[in-house]
Design a protein around this nucleic acid. Structure first.
Length: 583
RNA sequence: GCGGCCGUGGUGUAGCCUGGUAGCACGUCGGCCUUCCAAGCCGGAGAUCCCGGGUUCAAAUCCCGGCGGCCGCACCA
């Protein structure tokens, strides 16, 4: 556990080579706040861009940026203010802190919802509840919210929060996006950005941060048409499920592999969009180098789910030190959020659906012939008219149909006193509140997991076997020796490749072994080396980061080779397809 | 917040018990050498010894307080 765990090695490499490290170190650091360095930022950006391709662009979804800061009302409406808040009591003796509600429940005391801190204090006193650990007296009860609070502008009453999720932005700005995108549904609205949670005690490196990047997608769809059109291609894909049934029998160590179709047939997953995003997430992490056997979807039970979710699965990745760790959450948020904002803001946040066929509704109008009624019933016309204006048209019609007349008090009014008109109204569309399926990813955790899975050792050397398209450089160019003619040639090659748009590391001055070793540690997938033969025939060697195997390649074919590698083709396969000469 | 362990150049550490010039290795920078995997040689830079206070002629070292980290507890919508 100590000193040699994979997590320590990754953290050490990350710090040494500039992927990430604890922020504000010069002032001693602050728990849960990390800095991402040069290579770390490249990695995160590449992961985010791949996510955009897989989840957003492929479906013609859209991405927005909403503010990190929101006024109080937004998170009041969304339910976060109430459910992110707990009443805490601390022990006067040992200072341990407890959630007041769970403490009272453990003592078998019934509690109502919405108790204030002083209500809790009363209950604690009346029931003589003491610290369960040391038996000490309990102190004052206070609210604790894990959202970061702030003040917007100079007036202290203008409270705001740093958002705990980017998702609310998609809901608060939904109407505009929906209209700008010409009222198309289903529509996915994505956001990549910061979220903030004031964790009580974050101590797992970059795994649990107080400020972190999220990649969230809210898929808005018409609940009367909830079929995901993309799912068919994936029905036979295997998916690893730790479902409710397994959890309830205490079987938490692994997962059951089933096809997506089975998961749906067995109603483990009951929404086709959710199933689609889940299988896509399996594949996405696989593309990042995390094998599917080390991933699973854990169903969240009723008590574990967020207040807004009808059903949730956490995608978990197995990490060396911390075991199964959540990297994405898949929630069925129904119409919870939109309805909440509709209710609280009073703004009409609806979608419209065009009916497949226009519906025609018969509308009857029953118009009394006032002149005739007045003639036959005289003064009573006033009472009659006022009663008629309050009565339901359908009831009048029923009465006519049944009896041929209607009664108002004792007065019998035959059909002849009325003009009955039938109007046919054409209805082409109707309003509804879209439902939402949300896949939500923690970018920092994923970046960490990618590093941990890419981390390899070969003898005493470290190799970061990142997928080529995630590496901080596409390739490296080195001179075999630090001789001017090699360096010049290598620099020329470097310039050429950079001009073509590749990200290339050019390094020299140390022994070739050392150059390779440094490149391996930051994950550069291939290295081109200029040697004596290069000066004679314009060929260089190309070396594989993972196997150290080398081929000789014409300078003119280098870009073709890089393209293949970036496209995800393996080194050997790329070399074979280009019929390169093994060294 | 509690308990245990810990805090010395970028990294890993020695020194602490028994107070007296802060040492080593790796890395890094410059040079020489070098025909493919952190080779060798020479030279350089780089340390508020986590912070503050106390004891002492003298504190990295002993004492007190704090901060930070790891692990466990609690917490993690």
């Amino acid at each position: 556990m100590y000193g040699v765990s994979r997590a320590d090695k990754v953290a050490s490499l990350a710090r040494r080579r500039g992927f990430f490290w604890p922020a504000y170190e010069i002032y001693g650091g602050v728990g849960g706040l990390y800095a991402w360095g040069p290579y770390g930022v490249v990695l995160k950006n590449k992961i985010a861009n791949l996510w955009r391709e897989v989840f957003v662009y492929k479906h013609d979804f859209v991405e927005i940026q909403s503010p990190d800061i929101a006024p109080y009302v937004v998170f009041k409406a969304s339910g976060h203010v109430d459910s992110f808040k707990d009443v805490m009591v601390s022990c006067r003796e040992c200072n341990r802190k407890y959630r007041a509600d769970t403490l009272l429940k453990e003592h078998g005391i019934e509690i109502r919802e919405d108790l204030s801190p002083s209500d809790y204090e009363d209950l604690i006193r009346e029931n003589n509840v003491r610290c369960p650990v040391c038996g000490g007296k309990l102190g004052n009860a206070t609210y604790f919210t894990t959202m970061f609070q702030t003040i917007i502008g100079p007036y202290s009453e203008n409270k705001g929060f740093l958002r705990p999720e980017t998702a609310q932005g998609m809901f608060t700005e939904f109407k505009r996006v929906y209209e700008a995108m010409r009222k198309r549904l289903p529509i996915g609205i994505a956001q990549v950005g910061k979220g903030f949670r004031n964790e009580i005690s974050p101590r797992q490196g970059v795994i649990r941060l107080r400020e972190f990047d999220m990649m969230e997608l809210e898929l808005f769809y018409d609940p009367s048409d909830d079929e995901c059109p993309y799912l068919d291609d994936y029905l036979d894909e295997p998916i690893n499920m730790l479902h409710k049934e397994m959890i309830e029998r205490g079987d938490l160590s692994g997962y059951e592999t089933m096809t997506v179709k089975d998961a749906l047939d067995r109603k483990i997953i009951d929404n086709s969009w959710m199933a689609y995003f889940m299988i896509l997430s399996h594949i996405f992490l696989e593309m990042l180098g995390i094998p599917r056997t080390r991933q699973r979807f854990r169903e969240k039970l009723a008590g574990e789910r967020a207040h807004y979710a009808r059903k949730t699965f956490d995608q978990e990745v197995y990490l060396d030190r911390w075991g199964w760790v959540e990297v994405s959450g898949h929630a069925d948020r129904t119409d919870y959020d939109l309805s909440a904002h509709l209710k609280n803001s009073g703004v009409d946040i609806y979608a419209e659906r065009r009916l497949k066929e226009a519906r025609y509704v018969k509308e009857y109008e029953v118009r009394p012939r006032v002149r005739d009624i007045k003639r036959d019933f005289g003064d009573k016309v006033g009472v009659i008219m006022s009663r008629l204006s309050k009565s339901d048209v359908n009831k009048l019609l029923d009465s006519f149909k049944r009896d041929g007349y209607i009664l108002i008090d004792d007065i019998r009014l035959d059909k002849k006193y009325f003009d009955i008109e039938v109007k046919v109204k054409k209805i082409e569309s109707e309003k509804f509140i879209p439902h939402v399926i949300e896949p939500s990813f923690g970018l920092d955790r994923i970046a960490y997991a990618v590093l941990e899975y890419a981390y390899n050792e070969k003898g005493d050397r470290i190799i970061l076997s990142l997928p080529a398209y995630l590496a901080p450089y596409d390739a490296a160019v080195y001179p075999l020796l630090s001789k001017d003619e090699f360096i010049e040639y290598a620099r020329g090659l470097y310039d050429e490749l950079v001009k073509s748009g590749y990200k290339i590391l050019f390094d020299y001055g140390d022994s070739i072994g050392k150059l390779y070793a440094r490149g391996d540690e930051i994950g550069i997938p291939i290295a081109f080396t200029v040697d004596y033969k290069t000066l004679e025939d314009d060929t260089v060697t190309v070396r594989d980061r993972d196997t150290w195997v080398q081929y000789r390649i014409d300078k003119g074919r280098i870009q073709e080779f890089i393209e293949k590698i970036l496209g995800g083709i393996g080194f050997e396969e790329a070399a074979a397809s280009m019929k390169l000469e093994l060294i």
